[in-house]
Design a protein around this nucleic acid. Structure first.
Lengths: 177, 177
DNA sequence: AAGGCTATCTATAAAAC
DNA sequence: TGTTTTATAGATAGCCT
């Protein structure tokens, strides 16, 4: 959409990245706003800048969307429970291709990280192809279920914004392969 | 962006509205995905369809973004606390025409919801997702590898679906006004 | 109602201020 | 360092299958 076509890969130059972020975040929010108005629907977005500053957009507000999401009883649309989807396979593929490259490059670092990862029962990264396959498969098998849950939880958390001392504990889990 | 320019106002024809929603939601998610990749940032979106079905997008996951959003303490980016901005005044003005009423209405729901949430705390919403939480924790501790690893990690974890027994507890937080 | 197909409109990468 | 402009890439409204 600019003078030149750019590949969707992380922008290296910090300055350019920041500029890109500003422009695209603005564009994203605008799109979200249009969507909410055109279709009379509710939307909520949270995004972090390269500098880790959080930005958000909500129509009518992030809280409102969260509340609605968490109140399935109020939804009598068509009887369909919370159904969620991550997006299109196309998008996922785009992510995957990106991930593959990163995995390869980070394999070394990942090794160093090994210890910490293991603490969390996260095994070492393996070949990209494997990831892709499993992911694709997973995508198929748990598309609806998976993300629906993910979001509901996020919203639940967001819904309680004025929160400060949330403590999350993750017990060591046993791998059961 | 189509054969004709349209004003940003609620589409009346239900069918057209649905089609518009589908197309634009797809576009919105794609944009969000591109933003996350181009700038190496985290994004989370939740949107309801005209039929009240929730859809979501998250990179690397809605959870991760939510957790980060809720734990400013962990963020040492530049010390800037949560900055919340909706976008342009233009956009805001457009929203204003609708928001007020909805906010009020949502406020009640939110309140009701609050009770409910507290009651259930964060019950276990899922199994496969849990793994991502430990990962998001991990992310905070390994910022350096963060970008490169987060996605691949996510994929790996997802690939290991048969994850069970993780327990996450969220303590009741005290609001500190 | 789920996918293509353009003609057009919109977003935005670079460049110019 | 930002704001505005410009030329293009990208998104999509109306159609059609």
């Amino acid at each position: 959409m600019g003078r030149r076509k750019i590949e969707i890969a992380e922008v290296k130059d910090p300055n350019t990245k920041q500029v890109t972020f500003s422009k695209r975040r603005k564009g994203l929010f605008k799109k979200a706003n249009e969507l909410s108005i055109l279709c009379g629907v509710e939307v909520a977005i949270v995004v972090f800048s390269p500098g880790n500053k959080p930005y958000s957009f909500g129509h009518p507000s992030v809280d409102a969307v969260a509340a609605k999401f968490l109140e399935p009883n109020d939804v009598q649309g068509n009887g369909s429970p919370n159904i969620n989807e991550v997006g299109d396979m196309e998008m996922l593929n785009q992510q995957l291709s990106n991930v593959e490259a990163q995995i390869l490059e980070q394999q070394k670092k990942a090794t160093k990280l090994g210890e910490r990862l293991r603490k969390h029962e996260v095994k070492q990264l393996s070949k990209p192809r494997e990831s892709q396959d499993s992911f694709s498969q997973l995508q198929h098998n748990t598309k609806d279920y998976f993300d629906a849950i993910e979001v509901s939880e996020c919203l639940m958390l967001l819904a309680q914004q004025p929160v400060v001392g949330i403590k999350k504990r993750v017990s060591k889990k046993r791998r059961k392969n």
